[in-house]
Design a protein around this nucleic acid. Structure first.
Length: 309
DNA sequence: CGAATTTGACCTGC
DNA sequence: GCAGGTCAAATTCG
């Protein structure tokens, strides 16, 4: 009875998170589209207003995804006291606001002076991908280890803001396969830091040639594959992190949620992509993919005709 | 030269 | 006792 109530509540929270993520993504799209419209017709500089707003919206989208993924990967409805959770949702019946409740639980990971304490096995979530996941946070590598019966070493990362903001988020990355490359990223804890390295300036900057794309697929590219690639926008990311992308795994996106046909897509877009292989724009029923575009290029297209409207 | 990464030693939990 | 996780000095990078 109680468990059923908690399940319903979890479902409700996940639904709210997804809706919030969708709405925020739509707001972001509107900001970007309006920015493009403005650039097409005016030359005024509104970036001082638009960029902080867009950055905030991107952070909210990422947070929604993270919260939902956490709930998806936590099967238990009732949490033991020993279990270290990134979010205090023992009392799910109260349906707490996820983003406001994670700080204390994360402190469980805190290393005490003189004798460090190992974290418990409370995996927040785990993800296999063809390259390392760029998740919008800054990570600092603090160790690596050869693991028994594993072919490749495991790398240990903690949030770059561990000391500054007492953020206890950590992740482990282990290569599990070479061909095709496959990495397993395991996240522990939850970010309570306020800072994200996600800099969407390059996305909003019409003449910016830095490479950044929003990837809705699971096929990522590594920096090594494009050695001439460079970007200053993400210079604070860990050196071992791959190409600077917003990787939003396709399987984590519900249909109909990113771009609805109600959006003002009638304008002509001028998009610039560097080393873009896959740029997928989702409509409610269709997608457009650009494959194997290796050179920096400018794509001039009418979105309606692209979508067959 | 400061910041980030590497690496070997040390510590903890099983 | 061992495997895995963390620390911190050394090294590398930008």
């Amino acid at each position: 009875m109680e468990n059923r109530h908690l399940s319903n509540c979890r479902k409700q929270i996940m639904e709210q998170e997804l809706i919030r993520g969708r709405d925020t993504a739509n707001q972001l799209l509107e900001v970007i589209v309006n920015k493009l419209n403005i650039n097409l017709h005016h030359h005024g500089d509104l970036e001082g207003l638009i960029i902080p707003l867009a950055q905030d919206l991107v952070n909210k989208v990422l947070r929604s995804f993270t919260n939902t993924l956490f709930l998806l990967n936590t099967n238990n409805d009732v949490f033991s006291d020993e279990e270290v959770l990134p979010i205090t949702i023992k009392d799910l019946s109260k349906c707490p606001k996820l983003e406001e409740t994670d700080h204390e639980a994360c402190k469980t990971f805190k290393v005490q002076r003189g004798c460090y304490k190992r974290k418990s096995n409370a995996i927040t979530w785990e993800k296999d991908s063809s390259i390392l996941i760029e998740d919008g946070y800054e990570w600092r590598k603090y160790g690596q280890k050869k693991i028994m019966n594993a072919k490749y070493i495991r790398s240990y990362y903690r949030c770059s803001y561990k000391n500054e903001q007492d953020c206890a988020a950590m992740k482990q990355v282990q290569r599990i396969q070479v061909d095709p490359p496959l990495y397993r990223t395991t996240y522990y804890g939850h970010h309570n830091c306020k800072t994200s390295n996600l800099d969407i300036t390059s996305l909003l900057e019409p003449n910016n040639t830095s490479s950044m794309f929003i990837n809705f697929n699971d096929s990522f590219q590594t920096k090594e594959q494009y050695p001439s690639f460079s970007s200053s926008s993400f210079s604070k990311s860990t050196k071992q992190e791959p190409i600077e992308v917003i990787n939003i795994p396709y399987d984590h996106i519900a249909e109909n949620q990113l771009i609805s046909l109600d959006y003002p897509l009638s304008c002509d877009y001028e998009l610039e992509f560097d080393y873009l292989r896959h740029a997928t724009m989702l409509s409610s029923t269709q997608s457009v993919e650009f494959h194997d575009v290796y050179e920096p290029c400018s794509l001039d297209f009418d979105s309606k005709s692209c979508f067959g409207l």
